[in-house]
Simulated assay, not measured.
Amino acid sequence: MSGPLGPSLAPYVRSSRTLSKWLKPVATWYANLSGYRKVGLVYDDLLVEERPDVQRALSRLTPREAYDRAYRFKRASHASVLHKDLPQSEWTKPEEDVRYLKPHVLEVVKEDQERHVWDTINVARK
């Protein structure tokens, strides 16, 4: 899969128990190293918002999800201004780091592909 979410080998890794067992600790280590959890963000907060498909997906968030997203950004920018991470009790835990925007983005991409198919259909007279 490619697009706004980028290429992903995750389905292949999840299908293999051995690969999943070996790569899960590396993935957890990398997510902790990247530092977005230390300022209270979740992974989908890092998606590039300037893409039109991501903008449309953001407009489909529920009011609660939009509020939570804005709050996380405000808290993260405040921590950035202070040059400090949040207290460890306020870090995003791995089980809380869920992909809330991914279903919306995939839906928008699917709609765009369907629209492209319908817009480029060849109608032939019998």
Rank of each mutant, 00 (worst) to 15 (best):
L9W: 11
P25L: 07
P11R: 11
W118Y: 02
L47V: 15
V81A: 11
D53A: 09
E65A: 05
L5V: 10
T92D: 04
E111Y: 08
Y12I: 10
E95M: 08
H104R: 12
L19K: 05
R125T: 10
D85S: 02
S16R: 03
R115Y: 07
S15A: 15
H78V: 01
W29C: 02
E107K: 12
E65D: 12
D97L: 04
K126H: 06
E111A: 14
L58G: 05
P7E: 10
K102L: 09
E65W: 01
R51M: 08
T120K: 15
S59E: 11
A27Q: 11
F73Q: 07
D68G: 04
R51I: 10
E114A: 13
G35M: 01
V13T: 06
V54W: 02
S89H: 11
V123Y: 13
R115N: 13
H78E: 13
A124K: 14
V39H: 12
R72N: 01
G6I: 07
Q55G: 06
L23V: 01
R125Q: 10
G40D: 00
L23M: 11
L82A: 14
Q113L: 11
I121E: 09
R14A: 14
D53P: 00
A79P: 09
D68W: 06
K110G: 04
V26C: 12
V54H: 03
D45A: 10
S8M: 06
Y71G: 00
V48Q: 13
P94Y: 07
L82V: 03
P11L: 06
R125E: 10
D45Q: 05
A27P: 02
Y71P: 00
V105S: 04
R56S: 03
Q55V: 05
M1I: 03
R115H: 09
A79N: 12
A27E: 14
L41Q: 03
A27N: 04
L82P: 01
Q113M: 07
V105P: 00
L106E: 15
Q113K: 13
R125C: 10
H104W: 12
P4D: 09
P7S: 04
D112Y: 02
K93Y: 13
D68S: 09
Y36G: 10
S89V: 12
D45E: 01
V109M: 15
E49R: 07
Q113N: 07
S16M: 00
D119C: 06
D112Q: 06
V108E: 14
K38W: 08
R99L: 14
V81Y: 08
M1Q: 06
P7W: 05
P63L: 08
L106M: 13
P11M: 08
Y100M: 04
H78W: 05
S20F: 09
S15K: 15
H116P: 00
